[in-house]
């Protein structure tokens, strides 16, 4: 720790993790094999979890690993393995289209980098929130509190959203009498 100060160390770590995340994200969409791209996605999600940890949001990090890296990806991999012929023939893309897409992406990247670099106060690695702001207990308290800092209404609306999605999905998927 004598070689690098704490702030510099976390800066270096941030850029390292961010670079890995971007690399795996690109690998996710570039991979020819769907299974490979799902595996790359796991690494990208784990990178996000590490970023959360660096911001002292332990609960978010746990949720990220359990829900996304653990749950969603397993689901995706199951889906891919059960429908193995999916997407194999859809990879013939003509060159000009790739070229135009590349140009648009580069232009977009340029705008983003330029705009973001112009913004002051962005290169602060230490979290501005108070210590324990994103810990599990304060998180749960804020989620269910009715005060000005509380999120009870969005929390309840999410439950309604999930319920209606479930009802709609079952309605679309179920078979009714008369259908074989």
């Amino acid at each position: 720790m004598t070689l690098l100060s704490d702030a510099l160390f976390s800066d270096v770590m941030f850029y390292l993790v961010a670079a890995v995340m971007i690399g795996t994200a690109i690998a996710t969409i570039m991979a020819k094999n769907l299974l490979q791209s799902a595996v790359f996605l796991i690494f990208s999600f784990v990178g996000t979890a590490i970023l959360y940890l660096m911001l002292h949001a332990e609960f978010m990090a746990m949720a990220q690993i359990m829900v996304y890296a653990g749950g969603v990806i397993i689901f995706v991999i199951f889906t891919i393995l059960l429908t193995s012929h999916l997407g194999e023939s859809a990879l013939h893309i003509k060159l000009p289209r790739t070229f135009i897409a590349l140009m648009i992406s580069l232009a977009f990247l340029w705008v983003m980098v330029r705009f973001v670099v112009l913004t002051p106060d962005l290169n602060v690695a230490t979290p501005t929130a108070t210590s324990g702001y994103a810990s599990l207990s304060s998180f749960a308290l804020r989620l269910l509190s009715t005060g000005p800092e509380g999120f009870v209404i969005p929390f309840e609306i999410i439950s309604l959203l999930l319920l209606v999605t479930l009802v709609c999905a079952i309605t679309i998927a179920r078979k009714f009498k008369g259908e074989e």
């Binding site: 969005p154 209606v164 999605t165 709609c168």
Partner: peptide
């Protein structure tokens, strides 16, 4: 009154429509 509720409201209004279109 906050971004989260605003966003969820928009989703709540949109997601049933996806299902309705394929009813």
């Amino acid at each position: 009154c906050d971004l989260l509720t605003l966003f969820l409201g928009l989703e709540l209004a949109t997601i049933p429509m996806y299902a309705l279109a394929a009813w």
